[in-house]
Simulated assay, not measured.
Amino acid sequence: MRQIPAIVASILGGVLFILPARANEVFIGVYDQGVDTPFSLDVADQGGVAMQLGYRFDPIETVLDIEPYLIASINTVGDASFAGIGISRRFDLGPVYLRPGVGFVIQDQSGEQLDPITQDRIDLGSQVLFEPEIALGTDLSEQVSLEASWSHISHARLFNSEQNPGVDLIGIRLNLKL
C-alpha cells in the first residue's frame, strides 16, 4: 500500500505532459509535516518534510468558479504520504488572494498504532482521508504565484475510529500557469 502515492505521483507527472494547454496550473510545494496545531493531536509517528506536486485545472464556470485539482504528497522520512483529488476557489483580495480547498486523499499507512505510554491511537485511522486546506498567496508575475499553505489530513471520525489524530502540514508552494 505504501506505493500508492508514488504511483499517483508518476501518473500525475505523465499527465502534466499530455493534457492540453487549457489546464490552469501546476504547483510544487515543500511542507513541514506533523505540525502541532489546534486541529490535530500530537501524532507521534508523523514528521519530516513533505514534497507536494499538484495540478489545478481551469475553473469550472459556475456560481462558485471552483478549480478541480490533483495532488500527491511524498514524505521524505517514510511517514504518511498521500495522493488525491479536490476542489479549490481563488478569492482575489487586492495584492493577495485567499485559496480555500477541500479534497479526498488516500494515504499509504495502515494498521492500528498506539502510543506506548497513553495507549491513544496515533495512526490516521483510515486509508481514505479528508484534506481541507487554505492558502494565502500573491502573484509574482502573470505566470507565477507563491502561496503560504496549510493542509490537514484526517478521517473526521467518520471511518472506523472514535479518535481522530489528523496531521497538519504547513509550507509554501509555487504555482506556474500553463
Rank of each mutant, 00 (worst) to 15 (best):
S151E: 15
I87K: 10
H155E: 06
D115A: 04
F104S: 08
I60W: 05
S110N: 12
D92H: 14
L64C: 00
E147S: 03
A6H: 15
V96P: 00
Y55H: 12
L16V: 14
S73K: 09
D123F: 06
L176H: 14
S149W: 03
L178K: 03
L140A: 07
Y55N: 06
H152V: 02
K177S: 08
I71V: 15
V96G: 00
L16W: 01
A72H: 01
D139E: 15
G166N: 08
I172L: 15
G171W: 03
E147G: 02
R121N: 03
E112V: 14
E142G: 11
G103W: 02
L136D: 11
D42R: 13
F130V: 00
G125C: 04
V15Y: 13
V15K: 04
Y97M: 02
G125E: 06
Q52D: 06
N175A: 11
V167I: 12
V26E: 11
H152S: 03
L146D: 05
A50W: 09
V8Y: 15
Q119G: 05
P116M: 04
V30C: 03
G48D: 04
L53S: 12
Q33L: 10
L19P: 07
D108Y: 05
P20A: 07
I87W: 11
V128F: 14
W150T: 08
I74V: 10
E61Q: 13
D108F: 04
S88N: 10
E162W: 00
I66M: 12
D42L: 12
R90Q: 15
V105K: 04
G171N: 05
L19A: 14
S73I: 04
R22D: 13
S154Q: 02
G166P: 03
G101W: 03
A6M: 14
Q113P: 03
Q109Y: 07
S149K: 13
Q46M: 12
L178V: 13
F130P: 01
F27I: 11
A135N: 10
S73Q: 10
F104V: 15
S145V: 01
V128E: 10
L140R: 12
F17Q: 09
G171P: 08
L53W: 13
Q113K: 15
R121A: 02
F104Y: 06
V144E: 09
I170D: 05
G48H: 09
P100S: 01
A6Q: 13
F17P: 00
S141V: 07
L178W: 09
F17W: 06
Q143D: 15
N160Y: 10
A80I: 10
G48N: 08
G86I: 05
M1L: 13
G86Q: 02
